[in-house]
Design a protein around this nucleic acid. Structure first.
Length: 912
RNA sequence: GCCCGGAUGGCGGAAUCGGCAGACGCGACGGACUCAAAAUCCGUUGCCCGAAAGGGUGUGAGGGUUCAAGUCCCUCUCCGGGCACCA
């Protein structure tokens, strides 16, 4: 419209100044964060006196479907915080890289038929453009991608650190593997001198932090790869893609994260993290204190079943035992025939149910064998569907209760997991509900050894002298021990805690067991049968033993192959992994001159070796990217000591100052990265004991989604509302809340918002919707509110006809001045707390006041305008820079001091 | 089942320590400007009664502590998230 003022703040004008300022920031290197020394040290002298601040986002996968407005929420939050901190005198490091290896990038490449390197580069370019348009103040020099050869060279280097280390349990830290050799040599149990080279290497390999092991792993045929426990849902499906996952015995690379279980647990306490995330990591680590107890197996001299129990105080009450179906001793102990009456004297007549779940089997090995097949075939999903139904069969064998010599029938049952504890339990049905259920099912004795309170009996309407086998359920609470005495120990009359201490002492004294700790955490399965990942810096010799390449041989570059697709054999769990790198035949074998250490037989000379064909998982690159941001161009080190010490700070309180990301990484990335960091700490490569001092989880942006009568998503943007009902092309559709996403057809692209309002409006709206850590619904009609604020701000400072600043130098009236100082005070606090929504509300109030002043007096006082512009700057930096410039400043306000409040104007009028 | 969060107008959300509940924004309603509309500006807006002045009531439900409770304590309901045959 030609009659509109020339210099009105609208979307087109916003885009114009936004592009201009983004170019200027880039040209002037405004957000380059100087290092104290090295290649990125330019400009450090000017900021040497400043406090450092390292602000970090969880870097994105360049996934190819483009961004929606939910993605940048956290990035905007960290940018506002970083900009605020620059204005309060900090040297701020803020950068953004790409987590570009891994399944998402590869799946997208498979779909489009293009090489993952091509699609990844395209996606990074697209995403970079969309992020740049937001005006994020990143140091572009530090934006590494995990797929850069110059980057993954160091990922491989870190793997070598792990391969070349072992965990010293006494010192509670990782040490170089070389330091283990003298220990093994001196240990008579190893028989070191009689071992040949390969045997010594096998022995040493078994101690490494990175080791190969044959064990049950999660095989996902539909993805063509094995997966870590953390990548499998409770339903037994792949976290990515929701495909079935099967337990299979395979030899794979593992990382010894379990060695760090205690430290990963204990060091959580000192972190400024959301309590819920800490709790999730604690649960995942699953530390449990209890005791191990050895049970001799009758008729098998020298064979003992070791169980883990948290209730050693109930040992006298054990009446049977259970092994997991995968337990290695099962074959050894299973009897050749069903026991006769004399053996069953302690138990009574054997119920038929003990002899198999598909009918009565004639011999125990048949019953056990059939049961194991049955258990192996059940998916985790089926197991869960069956709920608490207890199944199992008798092995025909008996163990001896070490306290009283009672014969305990040994069962195999799938309610005991091989993956936890020792894979075997002593069953105390009186005091464990699962054992109680099983005992009822199989008519096993139930013996009470802890006396419940009278109230417990009252609540169940039974008399306090009711024997345990007549109780309606197990008593699992605290009580006083009873019927628990033998020649060596008596627990009778002791409370649970004291009884545990007493029985543990007795167990240790007789070498029957003793106190121990167990964890749910398993070692990290680290190899994948996929193309798009970091190759291992490992080759194999004729003995099929791994040899680590020397540092000088890095990087091991990912070979270019045309056929990178995984071999997918859906619904065939017997299929075998087929790593795509095997197809790079000229790469897969290599002539090398490898030097073996003296103890392994010394240099072996030039020979042909086979390369490791697996690649590293998605998580490898993201375990340490924050360290590479510190020194991205360093060709000699992962990170220089001076850069690392400067940005990561002290040992006890160091780490990233603020790490913002989604809650979905609570036990994946965040646990793995802490583990790697601790290994690097032990080996002296980093200063701080924890990588991420303060963690903040941004919320999720939700959006209404609409379903037609077949339950299919329909285009949300085209749905119309009439009288509280919703229609698309005349058909009624139903509305529900959900995450924003392409597949749900409710995604809003940031580009749409830029076109309608500009990036400053988008930033401000996302920060104004609610607290940063809360999920919030996207509502397009609400955006106009923050856009109006920016228009009003513009109009309060700029004459819309001339485009020039129009302000008064006369002092503000007292009321306005007081409001300004109260606003400065509150906004400063809010920004520090990441409470941007309330900070914005305060700025609205002050700006509304200015609008009144302008109406009354013709122009706004400069003493209020300038602080207001500076306070707006972290949130809406482009318009703030533009106003600042038009107010006569020639420098960017990125480092202008944030306004400070005069306490004189903060005192409240007293209220009675 | 266990462990964390949470519940405040039509909507998103405010409310350091226990101190005027509903800041700020959206929406709605009324007005100014306009031939008209948009944009902009001004005003009203928790609910109930009342023309108004004013009165009553109100933070998921019930009880309690307190001069004073959205906030602290007890019991319960619902919603979201995590874990779950973990011995």
């Amino acid at each position: 419209m030609s009659d509109l003022p020339q210099h009105r703040y609208d979307a087109a004008f916003a885009r114009e100044i936004e592009r201009r300022w983004q170019d200027r920031w880039e040209d002037e290197h405004t957000f380059w964060a100087p290092n104290p020394s090295g290649l990125l040290a330019e400009g450090f002298d000017a900021v040497a006196e400043r406090e450092k601040l390292f602000v970090l986002d969880m870097f994105p996968y360049p996934s190819g479907t483009g961004l929606h407005v939910g993605h940048p929420l956290g990035y905007i939050g960290t940018d506002v915080y970083a900009r605020f901190k620059r204005m309060t005198g900090h040297n701020v490091l803020h950068a953004m890289g790409y987590d570009a290896f891994g399944l998402p990038a590869e799946q997208y490449a498979v779909q489009t038929g293009q090489h993952p390197r091509v699609t990844t580069e395209e996606n990074i370019a697209t995403m970079g453009r969309q992020l740049r348009a937001l005006g994020l103040g990143h140091d572009p020099r530090r934006g590494v991608a995990t797929t850069d050869v110059a980057y993954y060279r160091w990922t491989q280097w870190i793997f070598l650190q792990m391969f070349n280390s072992f965990y010293d349990a006494d010192q509670q830290r990782a040490r170089p593997i070389d330091e283990l050799i003298p220990v093994l040599v001196a240990d008579p149990d190893t028989g070191w001198d009689s071992l040949d080279g390969p045997a010594r290497r096998r022995l040493v390999d078994s101690y490494r932090l990175a080791y190969r092991s044959e064990q049950p792993v999660n095989w996902c045929p539909a993805l063509g790869t094995v997966l870590a426990n953390e990548e499998v849902t409770p339903e037994g499906r792949s976290e990515r893609g929701n495909h079935p996952v099967h337990r299979r015995l395979m030899k794979q690379w593992m990382l010894r994260i379990t060695a760090y279980a205690d430290r990963l647990l204990a060091d959580l306490d000192g972190l400024e993290w959301p309590e819920s995330i800490k709790q999730m990591q604690r649960n995942w680590i699953g530390r449990s204190t209890g005791a191990e107890v050895d049970f001799a197996v009758a008729g098998h001299e020298g064979v003992a079943i070791t169980v883990f129990t948290t209730r050693p105080d109930t040992l006298f009450g054990a009446t049977y035992m259970v092994l997991a179906p995968e337990h290695p001793l099962l074959d050894t102990i299973t009897a050749t025939e069903w026991p006769d009456a004399t053996l069953m004297a302690d138990v009574g007549d054997m119920p038929d149910a003990w002899k198999g779940i598909f009918g009565i089997d004639s011999i125990p090995s048949e019953a056990v064998g059939r049961y194991r097949d049955f258990a192996a075939q059940k998916s985790d999903l089926e197991r869960q569907a069956e709920g608490q139904e207890k199944t199992g069969v008798f092995t025909g064998a008996f163990a001896r209760n070490p306290t009283n010599g009672d014969a305990l029938p040994i069962f195999v049952a799938d309610y005991v997991m091989m993956g936890y504890g020792t894979g075997a339990i002593m069953a105390v049905p009186a005091h464990d509900q699962r054992d109680f259920d099983f005992a009822r099912e199989f008519e096993l004795p139930i013996r009470g050894v802890i006396r419940p309170s009278d109230a417990w009996f009252d609540e169940r309407a039974i008399s306090p002298d009711t024997p345990a086998d007549a109780w309606p359920e197990a008593f699992t609470g605290d009580g006083v021990a009873m019927a628990s005495a033998n020649d060596g120990v008596t627990l009778d009359g002791l409370a649970v805690a004291d009884a545990k201490t007493a029985i543990n002492a007795w167990l240790e004294q007789g070498s029957r067991g003793g106190p121990t700790v167990t964890y749910k955490l398993r070692d990290w399965l680290f190899s994948r049968q996929r193309y798009w990942g970091e190759p291992f810096p490992i080759v194999y010799d004729a003995d099929d033993l791994p040899i680590a390449l020397a540092e000088a041989m890095l990087p091991v570059e990912l070979p270019e192959i045309a056929d990178f697709e995984p071999r997918i054999v859906e619904h065939d769990e017997t299929s075998l992994p087929d790593p795509p790198l095997a197809r790079a035949e000229s790469w897969a074998t290599v002539d090398l001159d490898v030097e073996l250490p003296e103890w392994a037989g010394g240099p072996s000379g030039p020979a042909e070796y086979r390369r490791e064909l697996n690649t590293m998982p998605q998580w490898a690159g993201s375990c340490w990217y924050y360290l590479r941001y510190l020194d991205p161009t360093n060709e000699n080190e992962m990170v220089s000591r001076s850069a690392e010490q400067y940005w990561m700070g002290s040992e006890a309180n160091g780490g990233v100052d603020l790490y913002v990301g989604g809650v979905e990484h609570a036990v994946l990335h965040l646990l793995y990265a802490r583990f790697w960091h601790k290994v690097l700490f032990d080996l002296g490569h980093v200063t701080a004991v924890e990588p991420f001092r303060r963690l903040f989880n941004q919320g999720v942006i939700t959006a209404a989604e609409y379903l037609d009568d077949r339950g299919m998503y329909v285009e949300a943007a085209r749905v119309e509302e009439r009288d509280g009902r919703f229609f698309l092309d005349g058909e009624e559709v139903t509305r529900q809340a959900g995450r924003m996403g392409k597949s749900r057809k409710n995604a809003v692209s940031p580009d749409e918002v830029y076109d309608a309002y500009g990036a400053d409006t988008l930033r401000l709206y996302e920060m104004f919707m609610g607290p940063l850590d809360a999920s919030r619904p996207w509502n397009t009609t609400d955006i106009i509110g923050v856009h109006r604020f920016l228009q009003r701000l513009w109009r309060n400072v700029i004459d819309e006809e001339t485009g020039e600043a129009h302000v008064r130098s006369e002092p503000a009236d007292l009321e306005t001045r007081r409001l300004a100082h109260r606003t400065i005070d509150a906004v400063g606090h809010d920004m520090d707390e990441l409470a941007f929504n309330t900070a914005i509300a305060r700025l609205f109030e002050l700006n509304n006041r200015l609008t009144q002043v302008v109406a009354e007096e013709g122009a706004a006082p400069i003493e209020v305008v300038e602080p207001l512009v500076l306070m707006v700057a972290p949130l809406a930096p482009h318009i703030a820079e533009e106003l600042w410039g038009r107010l006569g400043h020639t420098e960017s306000l990125a480092f202008a001091p944030f306004p400070s409040a005069d306490p004189e104007y903060l005192v409240d009028e007293t209220v009675e």
